[in-house]
Every structure is written in C-alpha cells, then in structure tokens.
C-alpha cells in the first residue's frame, strides 16, 4: 500500500458516499445518471468475485464489501425508492454500446483466458467508460448540481491517483499491469474536460454549467 493508492481509495469512498447522501438527504436523484450507477455496480460485482476466495487484507475485503453495498444501495434508491425523481428523459445513453464492446475486448485482450481473469478484465475496461452516461447526461442538461460536481471530482481523482500509485509501484515494487494502466489512463482522460470546468468554475463558487 502507498499514499497514492490509499488517498485514491478514500477519494473513491468519498465520492460514493457523497452521491449516496445527496440522494438520501434531498430524496431526489435529479441530475444523476442511473445508467452509470448500474455500470458501477456491474464493475464491482465482476471485479470482486474473489472476495471470498482470495483474502488479501481486512482493509481490502472491507472496502470491497462497502463498495458493492453502497453502489447497490444507490441503484436501489434511484430505481425503486426515489424512482419518481429519476430523470429518465436525460439519462438516455445506450449502455449496451458500452457493455458489448467492452465484453468482447475482455475476451480478446486479457492476461489469462480464465473466467475470473476475463471478468476482472471486463470490470477494468467497463470502469474506464462507466462515467460516460453521467457525463452525457450533464452535457444534455447543460449543468450539474454543485454536489454532483463534487462527486465527479472525487470519482475522477481516484483513478488519477491510481495512475500515480502504478508509477510508484513500478519503480519500488516492479509491479506493472498494462491493462489496468491503459484503462486507467482512458478513464482519467474522460474526466479532463470536467476537471477543467470544475477547477475554473466550481472552485470559484460558480455553478457547473457547460457552455451552451
């Protein structure tokens, strides 16, 4: 474990709970893409299948459980409890255009052609594009609530910190996983436009609004 990965995981945890609290407190999921949340739930479920077979540490197992439970809870709040506030008119990204190609790629490009490894690879590829429905929804509505932009900033920062973690691990542990690094770069690059808007607007107390 290193500081980049620890801060990254905590940033990821913060993002998930900021969103969960926003929906729970405001009793509304306006401006939030349910499709992205479904993709994130799929990412965690396919990635953490080794939860019971491969014990790494208490921290690792605990975080996996928290990530799965909180993301499933978010999907439940959005599609069942506060379904009336779900903005399906703006959450129209065709996620099958993400899941199918990513599924195919996981079969073609992976470290080991075994079910667990292919599912892990699928999860890594899917996570890199899972935020697209959310970013697409913001581009359609033209703006995002400030709390939603904080959620996105924390979520985008987590994988950027993981990139630093992989640089650290490469030099100090000789650890390198090309699939995770390439997907992590794609994932972080997708946030660049948002990071620019967040830093130039939200940081100065303005609302995040995309140029019309």
């Amino acid at each position: 474990m290193n500081i980049f990965r620890l801060v990254g995981d905590l940033s990821h945890l913060l993002a998930i709970f900021v969103l969960l609290l926003k929906i729970w407190k405001s009793r509304s999921c306006a401006g939030v893409s349910g499709k992205s949340q479904i993709l994130f739930a799929l990412v965690f479920i396919t990635r953490y299948l080794d939860l019971f077979t491969n014990f790494i540490s208490v921290y690792n197992s605990l975080m996996k459980v928290i990530f799965i439970a909180s993301t499933v809870a978010t999907v439940y709040l959005m599609y069942i409890k506060f379904k009336a506030t779900y903005d399906s008119n703006h959450d129209t990204f065709r996620i099958e255009f993400l899941v199918v190609p990513v599924g195919g790629l996981a079969f073609l490009v992976n470290h080991d052609f075994t079910p667990l490894e292919i599912l892990w690879t699928f999860s890594i590829y899917l996570e890199s594009v899972a935020i697209l429905p959310q970013l697409f929804m913001i581009s359609k509505t033209g703006e995002a609530e400030t709390i939603t932009s904080h959620y996105l900033f924390a979520l985008g920062s987590y994988r950027a910190l993981y990139l630093l973690n992989w640089i650290y691990r490469y030099y100090f542990e000789g650890y390198f996983d090309l699939i995770a690094v390439v997907a992590g770069c794609v994932q972080t690059i997708l946030y660049c436009d948002f990071f620019y808007l967040y830093i130039t607007k939200v940081m100065w107390g303005k609302k995040l609004s995309l140029p019309a």
Binding site: I56, K64, H111, R169, G174
Partner: peptide
C-alpha cells in the same frame, strides 16, 4: 516482480 496476476488492488 509482482505480476499483474496479484490482484491486491481495489
């Protein structure tokens, strides 16, 4: 070195 098969990250 620890190869990618070691899935010790979240």
């Amino acid at each position: 070195p620890a190869g990618p098969s070691v899935k010790d990250e979240l």
